[in-house]
Amino acid sequence: MAITRALGQTMARLADWEVGALTHRVDEMHHAGPAPGDRVDTALRMLDDLSDGFEALMVYVWRRHLAAAVSRIMALDPDDDLNTTELTVGFADIVSFTALSNDLSRQRIGDLVELFESRCADVVAGQRGRVIKSIGDSVLFVNDDPIRAYDTAEGIINVIGRDSRMPDVRLGLATGGVVMRLGDVFGPPVNMAARLTAVARRNRIIVDAAMASLLPPDQFETRRLPARPVRGFGLVEPVAVRRH
């Protein structure tokens, strides 16, 4: 039942994503000049033309991700809980997204979120991490290497926060034991990373003490910030980090 539910939810989102991408392309084609038939006919023809190749691609990608997931499980200690592992969790969050969305058209908001998600995904993949999910104006990712997780956060700032056409971002990172279930992750590091994004300044990275302790002092400079109340954790001393 759990796999059936996950399959339905994943395929529903994939179908919406596919149709949304195609309709966007159809609009571009019709704005560029006369096209045979109406927009619905054009979109249906494109779906029909792509279906066979897309189905083969979908199965191929699923098999590759299945092999990667099995490899991650096999790398764990067999005496440990196979659903729990040590990871660094990161949250990337668009600054002032609510106010921003009130000033932008619906089309512009959609384009902005899509560009934000795609750029984050590229950076995460480049550092051998995984995007767990996108939550509107935020992206949740994980990496089993805290240094690569920091490089991911720095990379996201470089491709989004440093781009004058994009909004500023904030990054929160936390390390610890997380529970992996149905493609999602749970546990204190996930909650801590999310809370730290509210503490971080624009285009800055804030980490928890556990992650800071794993960063080599010859490569990184860490600075404890004043303690402040963090919902669900009491008083917390976040740590600002930068490379030497």
Rank of each mutant, 00 (worst) to 15 (best):
T42G: 07
R243Q: 15
A193P: 08
D52M: 10
D38Q: 01
P188T: 00
F233W: 02
L214I: 01
G126N: 07
L171A: 12
R243K: 15
T197H: 04
E18S: 11
L57P: 02
L182I: 03
E117A: 13
V61L: 12
P78C: 06
L225Q: 10
T197W: 08
R72I: 00
R130P: 08
G234I: 00
V139E: 12
E154D: 15
L22W: 09
N143T: 07
I73M: 10
Q107H: 12
Y60V: 01
A212I: 06
V131L: 07
V239L: 08
N203H: 07
L104C: 11
I205R: 03
A193W: 09
P189R: 03
P229T: 00
D80A: 13
F97I: 04
R106H: 15
M11D: 02
P226A: 02
D81F: 03
D79A: 14
V185L: 13
F233T: 00
I156H: 09
Q127A: 09
T88Y: 10
P229E: 00
I132H: 14
T10F: 05
Q9S: 13
M192W: 09
R148C: 07
S105T: 02
A174T: 02
R195V: 00
L50R: 09
G234P: 07
V26F: 04
G232P: 08
P188G: 00
I3A: 02
L7G: 03
L7Q: 05
F54L: 03
G110I: 05
E18N: 11
A32T: 00
V113I: 15
L82G: 10
S134I: 05
A99H: 07
A153Y: 03
D145S: 03
A227H: 10
M74I: 05
D48L: 11
V123I: 07
L57M: 07
A68S: 14
P238Q: 03
D48H: 11
L196K: 04
P167A: 04
R243G: 15
A35M: 12
S71T: 06
M74A: 15
R128Q: 12
R204A: 15
V178H: 12
D81Q: 11
G232R: 00
V241E: 06
A15M: 06
M180H: 14
V207I: 12
A121C: 12
L225K: 09
R148G: 10
V61N: 05
